[in-house]
Each structure stands twice: as C-alpha cells, then as structure tokens.
C-alpha cells in the first residue's frame, strides 16, 4: 500500500468520523442528505459482497467493516433516532435515488469487466459511488448556513477521492497493471463533482467567511 492510498483511506475514515461525531454528539443531522447516506450504504453493501469469502488483509477487512457499519448506522440515526431525525431537512432533501441507482445499474450491466453477479455488483458500486454525493451537494446549495462539520465532511470526502487518484497514478507507474478504465473514469468523474465545492470551500476559508454555495 502506498502513502497516497493510506492517506486517502484515512481521509475517508476522518470524513465518516466527523459526520458521526456531529450526529452522535450534537444530536443533529441538519444539512446532511439522507439520500446520499443511503446511497453510500448501498455502495458498500454491493461492493463488499466478498468481505467474508475473499481475504486480503486484516486492515482491509477492518476498514470494510467500519465503512459498512458507519454508513448503516448513520442511516439508522437519521431515520430512527428520535432526536436526530427531527433535525433532518426532509423538504430540502428531494433528490430521487432512483434517478441515480437505475442508470448506474444499467450501465454496470452493459459496461463491466466480467458478466458475473459479483463483478456487476462491484462495478455498479463504483458507478454509484461516483454520483452518490450529488444529493448532498444539492442540499448544501439549498442550505443557507452550512455548519462547519457538514462542510468539513464534504471537504474530507472530496479529499479522499483526490488522494485515490494520486494513488492510481502511483500504482500505474509502480505495478504491473492493466489500464483500469472503469475504476479510473468513474473515480475521475466523482472527483470532478467536488471541484465546484472545493472552489467555494477554499474561498470561504481564505476570506474567513462562512461557507455558502451560490444558488
């Protein structure tokens, strides 16, 4: 494992911890998109189908368990916890899951490396992860006051994706690998979706202003 990959995973872990911290400690999920969280739960559930049958490393299994556990517990908090769920902006979080899930699934059926159940589900999870942040970005744009933790959560998620791209560049030059078009292109699309957010994030940080995305 190279340094970019490790830094990427740690950033991803940090993003999840920031979100859980907000929800668990402040008992608020204001500004957090349940749609995005449900999509992530689906992403991990379909990607880690082989978690108990294909062992890679303790690190790998542990991280998979953390991402599965955290994504499902965030969804549970937002839907079921009697205090947390009251702070959910249901009226603002209107993005339709199916508009993302269905095209990703159809695309995975057509463009995959091998037409097997596990491989199609794995490819589907890559496509879906690429666009899963969209409901969250739409919600951020509608929310006038983005609190610090929500802003940091999205920033860390975007950072994780950017570090994964560096990781692939590194792997391309150091390992004997195929050109992994599916992983690369979906990863690139995913990272580009954050470009706009990053711009405004750095802008507000530089000017010491509250983060606000233009309508």
């Amino acid at each position: 494992m190279n340094i970019f990959r490790l830094a990427g995973d740690m950033t991803h872990l940090a993003s999840v911890l920031v979100l859980l911290l907000k929800i668990h400690t402040i008992k608020s999920c204001a500004g957090v998109s349940l749609k995005t969280q449900e999509l992530y739960a689906l992403v991990f559930a379909t990607r880690y189908l082989d978690i108990f049958t294909h062992f890679i490393s303790i690190y790998n299994t542990l991280m998979k368990l953390i991402f599965l556990g955290s994504s499902f517990s965030i969804v549970w908090y937002m839907r079921r916890h009697k205090i947390v769920r009251r702070s959910y902006d249901k009226e603002q979080d209107t993005f339709r899951h199916l508009f993302l899930i269905l095209p990703c699934f159809l695309l995975a059926l057509v463009i995959n490396e091998r037409f097997t159940f596990k491989e199609v589900m794995w490819t589907f999870s890559l496509y879906l992860e690429a666009v899963a942040i969209l409901p969250q970005l739409v919600l951020l744009q509608r929310t006038r006051n983005i609190d610090n933790l929500t802003g940091q959560y999205v920033f860390l998620l975007g950072g994780y994706r950017a570090l994964y791209i560096l990781n692939w560049i590194y792997r391309y030059f150091t390992e004997q690998h195929f050109v992994h078009w599916i992983t690369w292109i979906s990863g690139l699309v995913q990272t580009l979706l954050y470009a706009d957010f990053f711009y405004y994030y750095f802008h507000s940080w530089k000017n010491n202003e509250k983060l606000q995305l233009p309508a």
Binding site: R5, D9, N60, E113, E119, W122, N167, F178, H180
Partner: peptide
Amino acid sequence: TEPSAFKDEL
C-alpha cells in the same frame, strides 16, 4: 493476473 481492477482497494 486478476482481470478485475483494484479489488484490494476500498
């Protein structure tokens, strides 16, 4: 070689 990409990633 495993044809499927980067299965060791998260």
